[in-house]
Computed example of a mutant assay.
Amino acid sequence: MSGSGDGQKAQGRGTAKMVGVAIAAFAFTFSLVPLYRVACEKVFGIRVENAAIGSDRAVALGAGKSDRVITVQFDGGVNSKLPWSFHPEQVSMKVRPGEQYDTTFYARNDGKRAIVGNAVPSIAPARASGYFSKTECFCFTAQTLQAGEARDMPVRFIIAPDLPEEIHTITLSYTFFKNNELTAQLGAAGSATASRAAP
């Protein structure tokens, strides 16, 4: 009987450890967003605006459409360690606050192997960042391009109708950085596949 009791205690401790690990993993994942923001703003000096908004928020913004016309400028570049070409398909557009708009950025991997990149967005002037929301964006996830692959990357955005009157132009800019960890994993997976395929 005591052996059975000890087994149950050990099983209970094991379950408690598993639950603890799961909670710790959840907490770590949850903390990545603010850590990412701090890294971008403090280390790279890039101000990251609010990320995606939900459909309810988008509808609420659209309900207050404005007759104002705002110029949105687009800019894009890559970190020196990333052998990609990256630029906006259009330099600027005229938009009305409260309405959704779409634009695209062009990316091409000029390297000789598959590479994973992450785009870090920024808004200028900084004051406008709280009024500019993206409902769809390639920057929400890591992007993988095979060697020589080119792709159009969409962005859908909306500007809040209560944008301060003195703001007439907003610049949306992206900088792509190489994701070293995911690129290494991709290369390792490719090497493993090639070795299995070899006779």
Rank of each mutant, 00 (worst) to 15 (best):
residue 73 Q to M: 09
residue 71 T to P: 02
residue 157 F to T: 02
residue 103 T to W: 02
residue 94 K to C: 01
residue 118 N to C: 07
residue 123 I to H: 08
residue 141 T to D: 10
residue 95 V to H: 11
residue 134 K to M: 15
residue 98 G to W: 06
residue 157 F to H: 02
residue 78 V to Y: 04
residue 97 P to D: 03
residue 95 V to P: 04
residue 141 T to F: 04
residue 141 T to Q: 12
residue 157 F to S: 03
residue 124 A to N: 13
residue 101 Y to C: 01
residue 115 I to K: 11
residue 77 G to C: 07
residue 148 G to H: 12
residue 78 V to C: 15
residue 132 F to N: 02
residue 107 A to I: 07
residue 133 S to I: 05
residue 100 Q to E: 12
residue 110 D to M: 14
residue 105 F to W: 09
residue 112 K to V: 11
residue 136 E to N: 10
residue 91 V to R: 14
residue 152 D to M: 11
residue 86 F to P: 13
residue 144 T to S: 08
residue 116 V to I: 13
residue 110 D to K: 15
residue 153 M to I: 13
residue 138 F to A: 03
residue 72 V to F: 06
residue 108 R to T: 11
residue 83 P to F: 00
residue 154 P to Q: 04
residue 115 I to E: 12
residue 82 L to C: 05
residue 110 D to N: 14
residue 129 S to D: 13
residue 107 A to D: 02
residue 77 G to Y: 12
residue 85 S to Y: 11
residue 108 R to S: 05
residue 138 F to T: 02
residue 157 F to W: 01
residue 74 F to H: 10
residue 157 F to G: 04
residue 111 G to N: 06
residue 80 S to P: 05
residue 128 A to C: 02
residue 120 V to G: 00
residue 76 G to L: 03
residue 98 G to T: 04
residue 77 G to M: 05
residue 141 T to H: 14
residue 148 G to D: 11
residue 106 Y to D: 14
residue 161 P to E: 04
residue 98 G to M: 02
residue 117 G to P: 01
residue 97 P to N: 02
residue 131 Y to E: 02
residue 122 S to I: 00
residue 119 A to Q: 07
residue 92 S to H: 12
residue 158 I to F: 01
residue 126 A to G: 10
residue 85 S to M: 03
residue 128 A to N: 11
residue 155 V to P: 01
residue 132 F to H: 00
residue 73 Q to R: 12
residue 112 K to S: 13
residue 122 S to Q: 07
residue 151 R to G: 00
residue 101 Y to Q: 06
residue 84 W to D: 04
residue 102 D to Y: 10
residue 86 F to V: 05
residue 156 R to M: 08
residue 116 V to C: 03
residue 73 Q to H: 07
residue 95 V to G: 09
residue 152 D to T: 06
residue 122 S to V: 00
residue 130 G to E: 12
residue 81 K to L: 13
residue 127 R to K: 13
residue 94 K to Y: 04
residue 149 E to R: 12
residue 145 L to C: 06
residue 125 P to D: 06
residue 149 E to C: 07
residue 93 M to C: 08
residue 135 T to W: 03
residue 81 K to R: 15
residue 154 P to R: 03
residue 144 T to W: 02
residue 96 R to N: 15
residue 133 S to G: 03
residue 123 I to L: 02
residue 115 I to S: 11
residue 79 N to H: 14
residue 86 F to W: 10
residue 142 A to C: 08
residue 71 T to A: 14
residue 123 I to C: 07
residue 91 V to P: 05
residue 160 A to V: 04
residue 97 P to G: 00
residue 92 S to M: 05
residue 133 S to V: 09
residue 72 V to K: 10
residue 121 P to T: 05
residue 108 R to Y: 06
residue 154 P to N: 05
residue 121 P to S: 00
residue 79 N to A: 15
residue 160 A to Y: 03
residue 86 F to E: 09
residue 113 R to D: 14
residue 151 R to E: 13
residue 116 V to F: 01
residue 97 P to Q: 01
residue 154 P to E: 06
residue 87 H to P: 05
residue 99 E to L: 08
residue 136 E to Q: 10
residue 88 P to H: 02
residue 135 T to L: 08
residue 84 W to N: 08
residue 71 T to L: 14
residue 121 P to H: 06
residue 113 R to W: 09
residue 85 S to C: 07
residue 145 L to N: 03
residue 89 E to Y: 11
residue 142 A to G: 10
residue 158 I to M: 01
residue 131 Y to A: 06
residue 117 G to W: 07
residue 114 A to N: 03
residue 122 S to F: 01
residue 102 D to S: 15
residue 123 I to Y: 00
residue 73 Q to K: 12
